[in-house]
């Protein structure tokens, strides 16, 4: 009996770590990761304890009957927001509780969630560029500025995706994107292409703002996960620094 139970615990901790690291990589905050993992563990009748850090998760699963501990550690993959994953895992955790899924079903669902496609690249580029143009409008820009922001955002995001594909450092990718966007929007300021080109220049990098790291940072701090909050906040500041560096380079080039 003991052997089978041990196998079960080991298999469960593998699932829990996979779920946790997927959530961490997809941009969930610490308390959501903890709650989801606890929910799944208690659905299978075990208690779990979790140490969450930015780049690794440590988990102990405990079976009270046989007094058996199993600890394991897993590195989290590089971060990239993917809310389809978060939403899918949250639904899965509730169905595990309510329908009593076995491990095979859980692994199948995790594989299915992993294989879910992202939006087509052109649609991402077009909508994010539209969001940039919207920002420009909200800051008080006119049609010409909106068009400039649209093009700047489109090209900047394209460069960022290419740089990510080539495997550059994450902050360097953002620097490249900010530099490209500002280079395009800055030309409007340099050559006075419209009435208020500054609006286009200021809003052309807004698609890069570290929204998820910063909001997650503050919500982690609010819930008492001070360490995670600080790490996430620092990550957000690094991203803001990369954006500023990209802007600064174009300001120096154009001398504006």
């Amino acid at each position: 009996m003991e052997n089978r139970n041990i196998k079960r615990i080991q298999e469960l901790s593998k699932i829990l770590l996979e779920v946790g690291s997927l959530l961490m990589a997809s941009g969930a905050n610490s308390s959501r990761i903890r709650i989801t993992i606890m929910r799944i563990a208690s659905a299978y009748g075990f208690s779990a304890e979790l140490l969450i850090t930015h780049r690794a998760l440590m988990l102990t699963v405990f079976d009270e009957e046989s007094d058996y501990f199993h600890s394991s550690l897993k590195r989290t993959s590089p971060h990239g927001a993917n809310f389809k994953m978060v939403s899918g895992i949250s639904r899965m955790s509730w169905r595990i509780v309510e329908e009593g899924w076995d491990y095979g079903k859980v692994w199948a669902e995790i594989d299915r969630l992993k294989s879910l496609p992202h939006y087509p690249r052109l649609i991402i580029l077009a909508t994010v560029a539209l969001a940039g143009a919207s920002f420009c409008r909200l800051f008080g820009g006119g049609p010409v500025e909106m068009l400039i922001t649209y093009i700047a955002t489109f090209c900047g995001l394209f460069i960022r995706q290419e740089a990510v594909k080539k495997g550059f450092n994450a902050y360097l990718c953002i620097f490249f994107a900010a530099f490209t966007s500002c280079l395009i929007a800055g030309s409007a300021v340099k050559f006075q292409l419209s009435v208020n080109p500054e609006h286009a220049f200021a809003t052309s990098v807004l698609y890069l703002i570290p929204g998820i790291p910063l909001i997650n940072s503050l919500s982690d701090l609010l819930e008492g996960n001070i360490m995670n909050g600080l790490v996430r906040g620092m990550n957000g500041l690094m991203i803001a620094f990369s954006i500023a560096l990209g802007m600064l380079c174009t300001i120096l080039i154009y001398n504006i």
């Binding site: 809310f83 200021a202 909001i215 957000g236």
Partner: peptide
């Protein structure tokens, strides 16, 4: 049928003070 933060985060991102953050860095 999705966790509330899937709706809340994209909806508040336009309010995130990105412009202030990079102006501070500049």
């Amino acid at each position: 049928h999705a966790p509330p933060f899937v709706f809340a985060i994209p909806a508040v991102i336009p309010m995130v003070p990105g412009a202030f953050a990079y102006r501070m860095m500049l």
